[in-house]
Amino acid sequence: GIPATNLSRVAGLEKQLAIELKVKQGAENMIQTYSNGSTKDRKLLLTAQQMLQDSKTKIDIIRMQLRRALQ
């Protein structure tokens, strides 16, 4: 079985993952909103794209940590 310490770690990672998935969803929504907007929305679009990139990276890292914890 999986050690108890790993189980609480997994629960924490799953919570983090859920949050990051919401951030990713929000960033994707912002990108959709701003991509057909005016030029003043360009900065917001770039910010949203950066957020999305960061979020995807975090999600990958969390998933990797989850896999390790579940081994």
Results as ranks from 00 to 15, higher is better:
Lys43His: 12
Gly26Phe: 10
Lys56Trp: 04
Gln49Gly: 02
Ile31Ala: 02
Lys40Asp: 05
Leu21Asn: 04
Ile59Asn: 00
Lys56Val: 11
Ala11His: 05
Leu17Ile: 02
Leu52Val: 03
Met64Thr: 13
Asn36Met: 06
Ala11Gln: 09
Gln25Val: 06
Asp54Ile: 07
Ala69Tyr: 11
Met51Phe: 04
Thr57Trp: 08
Arg68Ile: 15
Ala4Cys: 15
Gln25Met: 07
Arg63Asn: 05
Lys15Met: 07
Thr33Cys: 14
Arg42Glu: 14
Asp60Lys: 15
Lys40Arg: 06
Lys40Leu: 10
Gly12Met: 15
Ser55Gly: 02
Lys15Cys: 14
Leu21Glu: 03
Leu66Gln: 01
Met30Leu: 10
Thr47Phe: 07
Ala18Ser: 06
Thr33His: 06
Leu21Phe: 06
Leu70Asp: 04
Thr33Leu: 13
Arg9Val: 15
Leu44Gln: 12
Lys56Asp: 04
Leu44Gly: 07
Asp54Gly: 05
Thr5Glu: 13
Leu21Gln: 03
Ala4Tyr: 03
Lys40Cys: 10
Pro3Tyr: 04
Ala4Met: 07
Glu14His: 09
Glu20Pro: 00
Thr33Glu: 11
Ile62Lys: 00
Lys24Val: 04
Gln25Ser: 06
Asn6Trp: 05
Gly12Trp: 15
Ala27Gln: 02
Asp41Leu: 04
Glu14Tyr: 15
Leu45Ser: 01
Gly26Cys: 15
Arg68Trp: 13
Arg63Cys: 14
Gln49Tyr: 15
Lys56Ile: 13
Ile62Leu: 13
Ile62Ala: 01
Asp60Ile: 15
Lys22Glu: 07
Gln50Ile: 10
Gln49Ala: 05
Arg9Pro: 06
Thr57Glu: 09
Arg42Ala: 13
Glu20Leu: 14
Tyr34Ser: 02
Ile2Pro: 09
Asn29Val: 11
Asp41Pro: 03
Ala18Tyr: 07
Leu45Gly: 01
Leu44Asn: 07
Thr5Ser: 07
Leu21Asp: 01
Gln50Ser: 07
Gln49Ser: 03
Gly12Pro: 03
Arg63His: 06
Ile2Gly: 07
Ala69Phe: 08
Glu20Asn: 03
Gln25Thr: 09
Ile31Lys: 01
Tyr34His: 04
Gly12Lys: 15
Ser35Thr: 06
Glu14Leu: 15
Thr39Asn: 05
Gly26Ile: 13
Asp54Pro: 00
Asp41Val: 03
Arg9Gly: 11
Arg9Thr: 15
Ala18Gln: 14
Ala18Gly: 03
Val10Thr: 03
Leu7Lys: 14
Arg9Glu: 14
Leu17Met: 04
Leu46Glu: 14
Asn29Tyr: 08
Leu46Asp: 04
Glu14Arg: 15
Lys40Trp: 09
Thr39Gln: 12
Thr5Asp: 13
Arg42Trp: 14
Lys24Cys: 13
Lys15Arg: 11
Leu17Trp: 01
Asn6Asp: 15
Gln50Glu: 05
Met30Ser: 03
Gln32Leu: 08
Ser38Leu: 12
Ile19His: 09
Lys58Met: 04
Leu13Arg: 00
Gly12Ala: 15
